[in-house]
């Protein structure tokens, strides 16, 4: 009902998205630090939220934002994520001040704009991790075995980020990432 009222007032509808925040803190489990900031379902409300939270580059080390479709929690264990994986963009430390905010905003716009065409429903959400060594941005999809969908999403995503043509981004299945290892998880796909 509220959504219909907003649309009647000229707002541009979106499927509902949820924005989450967490802060890695050794004193408690990651899950306990996860907080839902808000949900929104119009373009106008997206910008109201975006304008009122800190830019990712201003967050302190250990913090994450996550934007997920309403009903999907930003964790591997969620039934919509557990068979999925992520397109991962790792940034060099100095890029926090030159590229991070642009890349994260571009990621958000790809998601809420549903810019992955018929493979859009495969996208569950996106996560940004602010870390000492390297910040990371990832787009999570729900089915790591859906090669056609995963590759389509990866190609569009890389193009939208305007990464150099020599840059390579990798896709990792969550089942591989979840295994504790001293090695980086292997890339299932690359674009």
């Amino acid at each position: 009902e509220e959504k219909k009222t907003k649309e009647a007032a000229g707002a541009h509808p979106l499927p509902r998205w949820a924005l989450w925040f967490s802060k890695n803190d050794r004193s408690r489990a990651w899950r306990d630090s996860l907080q839902l900031i808000t949900k929104f379902d119009t373009v106008e409300d997206f910008w109201a939220v975006y304008s009122n939270i800190k830019l990712a580059s201003r967050l302190s080390t250990g913090c994450d934002y996550a934007l997920f479709r309403d009903g999907i929690e930003p964790m591997w264990e969620d039934s919509m994520n557990k068979k999925g994986g992520r397109w991962l963009v790792c940034l060099a430390r100095q890029q926090r001040h030159t590229d991070l905010d642009r890349l994260w905003l571009e990621t958000l716009l790809c998601l809420i704009g549903e810019n992955f065409a018929e493979h859009g429903p495969e996208v569950c959400g996106a996560v940004i991790n602010i870390r000492t060594k390297r910040d990371k941005i990832a787009v999570w999809t729900r089915e790591a075995e859906n090669q056609e969908g995963v590759l389509h999403i990866g190609r569009i995503y890389k193009e939208r980020l305007r990464l150099s043509s020599t840059a390579i981004i990798g896709y990792q299945a969550h089942v591989d990432t979840a295994v504790k290892s001293s090695f980086l998880p292997k890339n299932k796909f690359m674009v």
């Binding site: 007032a9 000229g10 106008e44 975006y50 809420i112 704009g113 939208r160």
Partner: peptide, 20 residues
């Protein structure tokens, strides 16, 4: 299907005062 918006369209709303 879900409604698609391109990036320029979305960016046009960034600094628009909230009217709702």
């Amino acid at each position: 299907g879900k409604k698609q918006y391109d990036r320029e369209f979305l960016l046009d709303f960034q600094f628009m005062p909230a009217c709702i």
